[in-house]
């Protein structure tokens, strides 16, 4: 590499470092405000670092966790995300395999419908979907009533509304898998179920990771769907919880809200740093959907 090129690269390196520091500032600002006492957080003082007078220690964090059940919200959000992603990965991949391997007008129509559902904005179905989820219940011989407006069944709603992207991506991949492998296993005496789980499923792993990451990013952060479907008094996801620090009558508990934002961001950052490679790969292959 020539000297001038090395120098220009060094300059770029420095420029990008500065840009990145600025880029991270909003999060840093929330962090430092979350450590300040309530009275020191206002529109004119939000940029000031905490000093000995305004430093509140971890009070805001304690407040955020104890006052409104942060851990319960965290648990609900985690459960909803994990159960929905698991259901989407398992059922949508099976669905996608079937509709790529069986060629008929029905499977073709299903594929087009899935692609269509990806584009449709949530506002189109927001009211009807939430009233359907509210009113629908399945009674098991009077012993148990299954409701869909609880965190425990929300995966079914996400499986339905999130199927589009997953099926689309899985189909894209299945088309590139050579049929011969599957035919060989069928000839060797596997039934379709065995063929799927022993032959196709292992091949799907990279696509599973991509789909899983995209869907998890969406579901973990989703606000409107759980707000409209869940019983708000009983169950709050993290996105809903943060809303509650605004309180009624326009009063905002800034300190605890900042702490809650930090608590919401923290696990995401950890997961991101741990699985960065996969997440970035997931985004790139997910982009093929365009």
């Amino acid at each position: 590499m020539s000297k001038s090129k090395a120098r220009s690269n060094l300059i770029w390196s420095i420029v990008m470092t500065i840009v990145c520091v600025i880029y991270m500032y909003p999060i840093f600002m929330v962090l430092m405000n979350s450590l300040k006492v309530e009275s020191a957080i206002s529109t004119s003082t939000a940029f000031q670092l905490p000093n000995s007078e305004t430093f509140a220690g971890l009070d805001n964090y304690v407040n955020a966790i104890t006052s409104r059940g942060f851990f319960a919200s965290f648990g609900y959000t985690l459960f909803i995300t994990v159960s929905s992603v698991a259901a989407i990965l398992l059922f949508c991949s099976m669905f996608a395999w079937y509709i790529t391997r069986v060629r008929s007008w029905v499977t073709k129509a299903l594929y087009l419908l899935c692609a269509f559902s990806m584009v449709v904005p949530f506002q189109m179905v927001m009211f009807t979907l939430s009233s359907l989820a509210d009113s629908m219940r399945i009674n098991f011989f009077g012993l148990y009533t299954l409701r869909f407006n609880t965190p425990w069944m929300l995966w079914f709603v996400y499986l339905g509304f999130g199927a589009g992207l997953a099926v689309f991506m899985f189909c894209g991949f299945m088309r590139s898998v050579p049929l011969e492998i599957e035919e060989a296993s069928m000839i060797d005496g596997c039934n379709p179920l065995q063929t799927y789980f022993k032959v196709v499923f292992p091949l799907l792993k990279p696509t599973m990771v991509s789909v899983g990451i995209l869907e998890a990013m969406w579901i973990w952060n989703d606000y409107l769907l759980p707000t409209l479907i869940l019983d708000i008094d009983k169950y709050k996801t993290i996105s809903m919880l943060i809303q509650y620090f605004r309180g009624s009558y326009g009063r905002v508990e800034m300190g605890p809200m900042m702490a809650c934002i930090m608590l919401a961001i923290f696990p995401i950052v950890i997961v991101y740093l741990a699985g960065q490679k996969h997440i970035i790969k997931g985004v790139v292959s997910g982009a093929v959907k365009g």
Binding site: M94, F95, R101, V102, S117, V125
Partner: peptide, 24 residues
């Protein structure tokens, strides 16, 4: 494969009907 449609297609299809087609 066709014979196995209830296992492969039904779970997603039911959810899709519930979560997208009917509301739409």
């Amino acid at each position: 494969i066709r014979k196995y449609w209830p296992i492969f297609v039904l779970p997603t299809l039911l959810a899709f009907i519930f979560g997208f087609i009917i509301p739409f």
